[in-house]
Design a protein around this nucleic acid. Sequence first.
RNA 1: GGGCGAUUAGCUCAGUUGGUUAGAGUACUUGCCUUACAAGCAAGGUGUCAUAGGUUCGAGUCCUAUAUCGCCCACCA
Length: 838
Amino acid sequence: MLDKKYNHLDVEKDRYENWKEKGYFTCGDVSKKPYAIVIPPPNVTGKLHIGHALDTALQDIIIRFKRMQGFDCLWLPGTDHAAIATEAKVVARLKENKINKYELGREGFLKECFKWSDEHKNFIHEQWAKLGLSVDLTKERFTLDEGLSEAVKYVFVNLYEKGLIYRGEKIINWDPVAKTALSNEEVIYKDIEGAFYHLKYFIEGSNKYLEVATTRPETLFGDTAVAVNPNDERYKDLVGKNVILPIVGKSIPIILDEHADPTFGTGVVKITPAHDPNDFEVGERHNLPRIKVINEDGTMNELALHYQGMSRFEARDALVKELEEKDLLIKVEKITHSVGHSERTNAIVEPYLSKQWFVNMESLSKRVLENQKNKDTKVNFIPPRFEKIMNNWMSDCHDWCISRQLWWGHRIPAWYKNDEVYVGMNPPEGEGWVQDEDVLDTWFSSALWPFSTMGWPNKTDLYERYFPTDTLVTGYDIIFFWVCRMTFQSLEFTNKRPFKNCLIHGLIRDKLGRKMSKSLGNGVDPMDMIQEYGADALRYYLTTTSAPGMDIRFDEEKLRATWNFINKLWNASRFVLMNIDGVKEINLDNLNDSDKWLLTRLNYTIRDVTKYMEKFEFNNVNSYLYSFIWNDFCDNYIEMAKFSSNEEGTKSTLLYALTAILKMLHPFMPYVTDLLYNELPIKDENIMISDYPKMNKKLIFKDSEEKVNEIIEFIKNYRNTLKENNITSKYQVKINFDEKLIIKMLKLDEKIIDEDLKITSFKVATKRYEAIIYFEKEITDEDLLSQKKKIEELKNSIKKRVALLSNEAFTSKAPKELVEKEKNKLQEEKEQLEKMSV
RNA sequence: GGGCGAUUAGCUCAGUUGGUUAGAGUACUUGCCUUACAAGCAAGGUGUCAUAGGUUCGAGUCCUAUAUCGCCCACCA
């Protein structure tokens, strides 16, 4: 027998191990149709956050639903080595022990990284288990696995051979803390306080000067020109002259370039090709030298003269002071401007001239855009609006910088000997070749995830059977980090989309709508919530609380309400189990009206729930399931069933309905439904491999549905009348019907009389049931008023409906069913009014 | 500057291809320990659907503006 109260800790204990041992998570039944999802691999950096809980719960719901529908389901799990993120963490851990990565050397450092990633993989496994995720652990992959590394190399070499990967010297985003290049997507722009420094650049051979405004005076050592706009009349006569670089004393030309905006500041721009992407382009156009004045670690180099060795920021302060002393500073204007920060180290990113590897995005992105036009082969975003994000990014993307000056990652398969470059799967033969020191951007390997995890480029059984995958689930924040890149790599290398559907969910915010972040300390640990409310409640709450793609404000009150819902399910199950003694088979041949009513409602629910499960609209699934379970099943049916619990039909209906309820809830709350299902007298081996309920048209009973609906309505009206008129114990009732259910539910037995009494009376009436309640009491004005009000309301409604139905525009243009429905309603209302007017 | 989303009950959110009296949870009021559940039951009140126009027999839903809030991208010498 079940405990009186639902205890999630007891329920969820040890259950996962059992599923795993039985092999329920393992795919491979070739007699069934395949259905595949690959998990977005979490980084091996830390613990899973609440967003992971949402993302993985959604996938588990889909997989469990499809599994019960009879698909052979592969949910492929894995983890991401997360190049820079992990490397930063390991460096930090080593630092605690006062160890520097360079002292350790590449090999030693990688050993530390593997140690770290193994630890975190274990941690992630534990959390997946707590969440109840039915991932196929026999197929687990890691982005640095041998197979995946082969795929990465293959793709690199192939793109290189096609000319889509090249090595070039460009301005890239440099992280001076991690000392590596970053892609544009790894740079986060934040508004910070800064200043415009207005400097004097004296015109050569003159005592006049140009006023040059800059936010980064320390880069002036790298200036190789100043530019003005060709249409700027103010500086027309200066063309061809030179200015003297302050402090340095060097002469640099005044050039004409569109880049200078005459309406911005003084209209004069200093050009530092080695330290600014726009200036770099200006430099290209005018053939200017590129002078680097900053080192990899963000300190100034020898070209910065006496500022050598200072950090960028120290040098700025000191330089400004010197400029001021030498009367070369005109003014300092405080401004707020957005400055790029490294996503991982939070260091201010330095635009930096350096030799890196790039992917040419032109043809790859074009192919994605083309493919999205074909509705049979496109990636279907759910909700559809997110397709625009991918398309926008794909129609305006720059070449992708893929080399990283890190150790943790896939080493670039390029070797150099003097000026020769060799790119290949294996090291070149012969002496003197040195492999590129750099590794690839972590997203380069994640981009291959849906097929590299299945053994590609080998034609494995796994790949042949499950690729392209069916559905990818992820947050909108990584559409261009990841979804876009998977799509173009997949189209390029497999000629197929990586997944048919891409289900996009929102971000989880705190109660006030703020992003969860470490600095605010407003994060919610899913493991804490599981401890407090159970994984079942957390999963159900997170996945059903909002419409697809919308952000969620995390609200513990709602999570608690979900726990209450499970407690309700628990107790309803107790009731059923207490009342189905001796049932050996489900027999639905002899049913009473309330049984038929419940089965009818159940079948509608199965139909609606299935429809919305297929569409991934879990909030709608909830609204149908919740109201069916709580209102129809518990509040109405169980109460009615108490009067017929000895009947075979009712016992069977209770069991049949509970079985279907548990199955429909199972994808969301696997633990509690597994336990409750096991208590049932008639069951399959396990709920997670049982059949999903199907609508059965034979179990739709329209007449009983209508009748019991009216009974419920009558009961409600009756109780309302008692309550409103404060009728407590002593009253008598005259009725026009012999409906046992109403009599029992309202406990009318001892109150029924046959004759009319000449005392206060209230009438309760629906279409076919009518009761007059006699009550010893003076009718107060208030009573009269409330009765009058009801009649008024009814009259108004009738008036409105009559007007509507006499509107010819409506009757001729509206659908016939609707007009018919309105007519029926009008008829009903008229009848009711007649009955109410005593 | 370009794009996206939101605005509905005190709060948090749903609202299907337009269908005529707009829903849920929570909070609130009242009465109940009715042997599944008081973390419950019964009954109840709650709305200028951001604003202004328009289309339509009919608009929370479609169209056009506007306002406020949030997010993304680009630019920021």
